[in-house]
Design a protein around this nucleic acid. Structure first.
Lengths: 273, 273
DNA sequence: CGCCTAATTGAACCCGGTCAACCTTAGTGG
DNA sequence: CCACTAAGGTTGACCGGGTTCAATTAGGCG
């Protein structure tokens, strides 16, 4: 479809759009949505690796995740798709989708048929730019996940994971203070972090016992943002523009808490080159 | 500068360019290079995380790598930048570069100043498309590295790593048969795969003893492409278009060799959902 | 021929996986 | 109202792949 009613706002050379297309719908750019919003049930696959796709999806509510099944049956989750985010871009670009996308919760979706992605670059520069920025941020998120699994201990990984969720959800406006709803099973968390359910459980307990987080039901509360950030050297800049404005508001100061537990090594900063 | 002499070639809606911009220079698109080619010595940083950049770089020869140093001193290598590849795009997009880029060998570079990346989308759709496709492929490579570190054993990781290099280098034309020069120390390999030097060494030895690869000096020879592919379920499709044309030519057939050694599990394909 | 970097190899240790049991919660139907 | 069920959370015991520490050997180069 692509109704091509451009953004009413000046198509000037304003800085890149705020977040990876989060809140893009109804916000700055209007993606000229296909219209009707579809309801999709939990555990349904939206995109299946190996098939070809010609449309993007907009997530209007609920959580999804991008994943891949290996030949040994393991499932690696690349990242989670939060409300307001688009997905399915990669599936369009490659002849065949590299990864599957499934709903972690019940989800509200609309699709945006991009007849030929090619055209976008000639016809709709603002959209092209938005897509590009979106892809860059997603790429950065995955890169950070790479660091997670390659360099961080389980304790650090889970810390990093929760902080990332906090900051990303903050951008969608569903964070109250320092707590948010996390509709994920420990199996999904483990699937994303390269850990087993058992160990995710143990690690969450450790974080709780250390007074860094609190969990009641599905609600997670970050009790000590600074300490957690130190533990896993979390730097939200990889999450894009929007994150930057949050920094001040998030860090409640407090003396640099000493990270404890199996931190992989305590090499002094001098080794930082 | 951006001399803005557009691509003389038709700006038609031809399919996406072949590879992540590999061989882009002198090939299809002319990036309007800044001109002079700079020689950079091994171990020099080209891009430094935290600084801001306004230009892309083209690698005309030699290997580089994108990396990040963690607070504990660990260095994670995100990916290697091979001859013909461009880099520094992400550094331009974000206010400040997320990762550093250093030369693994002596390197020949030219830079492409893109005064404002913004402009590209309005002014030069073909370039925009090329950049986009490049970013998508790089993202896919990193995603595969994520799977490496999260789900694969050391034996599988190293296998996967070598196969990826083979396929990517094939696209640059420096592969002779099934062998190629790999100017990397085991420390660099470990830095990319999330392993210690020691274990990289042991794993390479195991692969050699199993008759899967051979190493003489810096030259690596893949002795059994099929077996290695099975071990780490390597599927080159994530490397983009170009890879696809290689498949037939690479697999020298041979019965599906049975992967040995500590494969994490030998669940029959039935469990593949 | 020394010097430095990289490659090798050995031995001890430990984080996280594996296996297995048990508990909690929510939903369902009689 | 409660028994029954299934999915997810929790915990313990043990094991092993990969790290760590440390020492030795090869390779390139002035």
């Amino acid at each position: 479809m692509l109704k091509d009613r451009r953004n009413p706002a000046p198509a000037s050379a304003q800085p890149l759009p705020p977040f990876p297309l989060y809140r893009l719908v109804g916000g700055g750019l209007d993606l000229a949505c296909g219209g009707e919003i579809r309801h999709v049930h939990k555990n349904t696959d939206i995109i299946i690796a190996g098939r070809h796709y010609q449309a993007l999806f907009v997530n209007h509510g609920g959580w999804l995740f991008r994943y891949k099944i290996l030949h040994n049956g393991d499932r690696q989750i690349m990242d989670f798709i939060l409300p307001g985010q688009i997905f399915g871009l990669q599936a369009c670009l490659f002849k065949t989708a590299l990864y599957s996308v499934a709903a972690a919760t019940d989800v509200l979706l609309s699709s945006v048929s991009l007849e030929a992605i090619d055209r976008v670059f000639e016809d709709n520069p603002p959209l092209a730019r938005a897509l590009f920025w979106s892809a860059a941020c997603e790429s950065a998120i995955i890169a950070e996940h790479l660091i997670d699994t390659a360099r961080r201990s389980a304790y650090e990984r889970v810390s990093h994971f929760l902080l990332e969720l906090l900051v990303r959800l903050k951008a969608t406006g569903v964070v109250e203070g320092m707590s948010f709803e996390m509709p994920l099973t420990q199996e999904l968390i483990g699937g994303a972090l390269g850990l087993t359910t058992v160990h995710v459980n143990r690690t969450l307990r450790a974080l709780r016992e250390d007074g860094l987080i609190a969990i009641e039901g599905r609600r997670v509360t970050i009790l000590d943002f600074e300490a957690l950030s130190l533990i896993c050297d979390f730097d939200s800049s990889y999450l894009g523009e929007a994150a930057r404005t949050l920094r001040g508001e998030m860090a409640p100061s407090g003396p640099a808490a000493q990270p404890r537990r199996h931190i992989r090594s305590a090499v002094p900063p001098s080794r930082l080159i």
